[in-house]
Structure formats: C-alpha cells, structure tokens
Amino acid sequence: MTPVSQPSAPSRSSTPAEPQPDALLRSEGLPEPQPGAQLRVSTTTSAAELEQLRRARPRGPHRRSPLAQVGVRLALVLVAVVALAPVAFLVSLSVRSTDDVLTGSWLPGSLDELAWGNWSAAFRTIPLAHMLANSWLVALGSALVTAVVAVPGAYVTARAGKRGARLGAALLAGYCAPPVVAVLPLFFLLKEVGLTNSVVGLALVNGLANAPVAVWLLDSFVRRVPVELEEAAWLDGLSVAGGLRRIVLPLIAPGLVAALLVCTFLAYGEFLFAVSFAQTTASQPLTVGLSLFQGDRTVQFGQQAAAALVGVVPVYVLAVVAQRWLVGGLSQGALK
C-alpha cells in the first residue's frame, strides 16, 4: 500500500478548472507553439495532470482494504467489457457466414472457415469506398468551416464582456435546438442555391451546425491566454485581429485541435442532414449507406458488420492517437 504521506506530484494544482501560474507550464508530448509565441504556455492542464497523476501515484490516494480494491477493479473490468462488447461482436460477425451467425454464439464456430469474403462483398453491396470518401470530405470540409466560425466566435465570447456573453447564449440556443427543426428550412435553402445532393452542401451545413460546440470548447482556452500578452502586442501596433492570429491562435492550438477533432467526429457520424439532403448515391456519406443495408429482407450480418467497421476503425485510430488532446480539450473546455 502506498503510504498516505507520499508527496503529491510537484506542479499539480488543486483545482484543474482554475488556471494557476504553475499550471500553465508546458507538458511534454504536446505540439510546440508556433514560432512567434515566446512564452511556452500550454492550456491542456488536465491531460498533463492526468499523466502526472498516473506516474506519481500508481496506487491511489487512500488506504483501502485489499478486498475493496479487488471489488473496484472487478467493477471496472466489467465496465470495460460492456464498453467493448458491441464492437468486438462486429469484428466477430464480419468474418462469419450467415449460417454460423445464426447459431447465436459470440464467436466464430470454427477458425478454419472464416468468411473473409464479407469484407469485399460489403464494398460491392453498397458503393462503400465512394461513400467513405464522401464522409471524410464532409467531415474535413466541415471542420474547416467550423474553424473559420469558431475561432473568432470563441474570441468574442471570451473577451467581449456582455456582448460576448450574449453571443454565447445565442450559440447555446442554437446547439440546444434539435437539428430536425432546421431540416425542412435548410432543405429549401440548399435547393435554392443548388447545394442539395452535394458534399459541399453537407460540409457547409455541418460546419455551421457544429460551430457552437467548438466555441463552447474553445472559450475557456482563450480565457486562459493572459490578456497582457495581447495588450503588449497592441502597443507594438498589432490590431486585435492581428493579435488573435499571431498571439492567441498559437496558444490555443491544443484546444483548437481537440475542438476540431470533436467536430470532425460529429460531422463524420452525422445522419439526419445527410439522409435529408443527399438523395443521390454519388453524394451520400457512409452513415446513409449503412442505413440502406436495412432495406434487405435477409439480414446480411457479416457484410453489415464489415461495412460498419470500415467506417468506424479510422475514427478509433484517430481517437486513440489523439486521446491526450481529446481528453484534455473535452474535460477542460466543457467544465466551466
């Protein structure tokens, strides 16, 4: 058991939600601020703290009976199993024949007769490759739109006092409204400008729709940039917009990465706008393609699972690689 008196990690602040001078230290593994920003300031304190905590205190802060510790661990293993089971079942399904699946077992009946053909068949049943490309075009294009809206937006909400608060409230209202409210009006708007059945149209709509989320996440990152840095830049003749670009933007980069990742995932998985505005196969993203599998009379277990995995695996890879930013950005941006 770790003694209670073990010293805690050196620069851990007691309240992660509140910035403190020593909490603004840079942690390793995060991207270098762009040249021009002389102070090495990072705003992903939470991710850094998690890391420090993991290293400094592998056993937990308090004495507990060994039995209680075993119980806690068992419960967490159960949580992990529940979190993973549906995805694991997809993997299992994707290499099994329908006959094998209909036995109702979780795992393939025999490892010698795996039906790898499901994967290639899925690409033939729906234009999977094309739809996957559409999905990523929509997701990345929309992230670009979101960035253009959210960076100035977050700057205003964080820095413009009452005016900023009003903008924040309006954006929150936009986020709370169910997207279905906008579906019919946007359908007519897109039709008017010729952007129905269009990847560009979907990217624009998703980019604007996700902007409130990005502003919400970025706001606290902007607030942590010392306004004195900007004031110094203004004295040197930089405009406010210039200061935003040259001083603030490099310092909020970790938050921006997190916010845009979240918005990329949201746009990538978006379904309602896609199924409403994209009626042609050429413009449909993967989420619509997957829903089309449902029309079949016989359930194509293996193919459906393979197609879903084709869509999900890149997201998982990205999420795991960028975990540090995602966790830091979400936990810090969303907690105010």
Binding site: V148, V149, P152, G153, V156, A160, V215
Partner: peptide, 9 residues
C-alpha cells in the same frame, strides 16, 4: 469578429 458566428446563428 462576431460576423461568422452570427451567420451560423
């Protein structure tokens, strides 16, 4: 600077 988010709204 408020213009892009106002367009979104």
């Amino acid at each position: 600077l408020s213009l892009p988010p106002l367009v979104a709204i």
